[in-house]
Design a protein around this nucleic acid. Structure first.
Lengths: 110, 110
DNA sequence: CGTTCTTTTCCATATTACATGAATTATGGA
DNA sequence: TCCATAATTCATGTAATATGGAAAAGAACG
């Protein structure tokens, strides 16, 4: 991932509404959530949500597909992974043991 | 980590200078870099750097200690780890195999 | 075709964040 | 004490971003 993409992703996530939305989508997993679901769950106006979903989409952190009258959104985990990889690139000054210990501590609670 | 701390961290990283600085510190590892080193490496004015180091410090992504006339900065990997943990919390809709596969793909190149 | 539901776009306003110059603080050496 | 070096703080003009109302667009259904 290039720096500009990383900045796009970080800027997208550095916002309360978008962080809430992205985490809801992360937690929803592969089935995703419709825009309407998100508006209800996060309690935000539809136009504000739409603007923020656009910003997340521009960063490729979410993707969408139309489903009847609704639009369903999904977290794009590949992009998330690339972003984390970029942040940790060449980390720890080449000391592999520091690096390994760091990664081991990122535990997923699911 | 709480949401507000995560937002503080993400906002701190969502900025070209600060992302450069943080990655330089990540790559420097435990020995860190002085403010002067950073200003030279990233080619930024000292006062601009100082402002941005303050923002990274407020997010606890970096810490510093005085070293003679210089101030040495270090990436705070614990905070970084907590931030990543927060982002991935309850991810993948409870499907452990998705989660595991995701984490396995975050490889550190060092 | 007209209505309803869902989502998006447009736009004006308000807020916030940013880089910079000038001044200030802190340290070490002459 | 005086000077040079290193880093920080402060005030300010400018630029970027967020917000919400109004209107429009897309889709399903009678």
């Amino acid at each position: 991932m290039e720096k500009n993409d990383a900045l796009l992703g970080l800027s997208a996530l550095a916002h309360e509404i978008r962080l809430d939305v992205f985490r809801l989508l992360i937690q929803a997993g592969p089935q995703g959530l419709t825009a309407g679901d998100l508006a209800r769950l996060a309690d935000i106006r539809p136009n504000t949500l739409s603007n923020n979903l656009n910003i997340l989409s521009a960063a490729d952190l979410v993707r969408s597909s139309r489903e009847g009258r609704s639009v369903r959104y999904f977290a794009q985990m590949d992009t998330m992974r690339d972003l984390l990889g970029f942040l940790l690139q060449d980390c720890c000054g080449g000391q592999v043991e520091l690096c390994q210990s760091f990664l081991d501590q990122i535990a997923c609670d699911c």
